[in-house]
Amino acid sequence: MNLPGSRTSSRRARSLLGATAGAALAILLAACGTDSPAAAPSASQAPVAGADRLTACPATPSKPPTTNSLPDVSLPCLGDGPDVRLADLRGPLVVNVWAQWCGPCREEAPYLAKLAKSGKVKMLGIDYDDPRPELAVKFATDEGLVYPHLVDTDKAIKQALRVGGPPLTAFVDADGTVAYVHRGVLTSQQQLDQLVKDKLGVTP
């Protein structure tokens, strides 16, 4: 026979069990996330201040990798625009690997800016191993680097281009072949222009 006190205790136990299960379910759903537009963006999704002032990354048609091409990796744009698959790119193209914390990168930046203004070759920057995207945006803006820039925080290009650290400048021909890689700082406009002429057949 069940006593009144026993029935009350049983009801309380079931009520407590239900509340506990409900709380656990709520925690589980919260941990799984939501597709609701009201959900706050993660830090990695948050736009970088000033990025809209940079040259947007263009959409590039997919192409089969060529022998000795740029690495077959896709990198996000530092400014606006889609991710860019490096192996899709064709030249004549100058790719400069840099970082805002890199002193020599600041030294060579005026030469790259002047080459870009000539319009004789396409240009692309890769902000490499850089923990401060907002400072990277400021660097590119202040130095007048008016061409698209990508972000490689995970050193995805390190092995293929044998990047010891920035700066590094790669010269890509019309077939997509990396014709030459200059490791280290560019020391003059004349040096950069001569490399473009010798490696890509273009006179700036």
Rank of each mutant, 00 (worst) to 15 (best):
S15G: 13
S15Y: 13
S15R: 14
L16H: 09
L16S: 10
A19E: 05
T20R: 08
T20F: 09
T20Q: 13
A21E: 13
A21P: 00
G22N: 06
G22K: 03
G22L: 08
G22H: 12
G22Y: 05
A23I: 12
A23G: 10
L25R: 01
L25F: 07
L25S: 06
L25W: 08
A26C: 04
A26W: 04
A26N: 03
A26Q: 08
I27Y: 10
I27C: 10
L28Q: 13
L28P: 07
L29R: 08
A30T: 15
A31R: 12
C32Q: 15
C32V: 11
G33Y: 07
G33N: 13
T34F: 05
T34P: 09
T34N: 03
D35A: 13
S36P: 04
S36H: 12
P37W: 02
A38W: 12
A38H: 15
A39N: 05
A39I: 02
A39W: 01
A39M: 13
A40S: 09
A40Y: 08
P41Q: 06
P41R: 01
P41M: 02
S42F: 10
A43S: 05
A43V: 12
S44E: 14
A46H: 11
A46R: 14
P47Y: 00
P47A: 06
P47R: 08
V48W: 01
V48A: 05
A49P: 00
G50R: 01
G50E: 09
D52N: 10
D52G: 07
R53M: 05
R53Q: 14
L54T: 04
L54A: 02
T55V: 15
A56R: 06
A56K: 01
C57F: 08
P58C: 10
A59V: 10
T60F: 15
T60H: 13
P61M: 11
P61E: 09
S62P: 05
S62L: 02
S62M: 15
S62K: 10
S62Q: 07
K63N: 11
K63R: 15
K63T: 15
P64G: 00
P64T: 09
P64R: 05
P64C: 05
P64Q: 04
P64W: 05
P65H: 06
P65E: 02
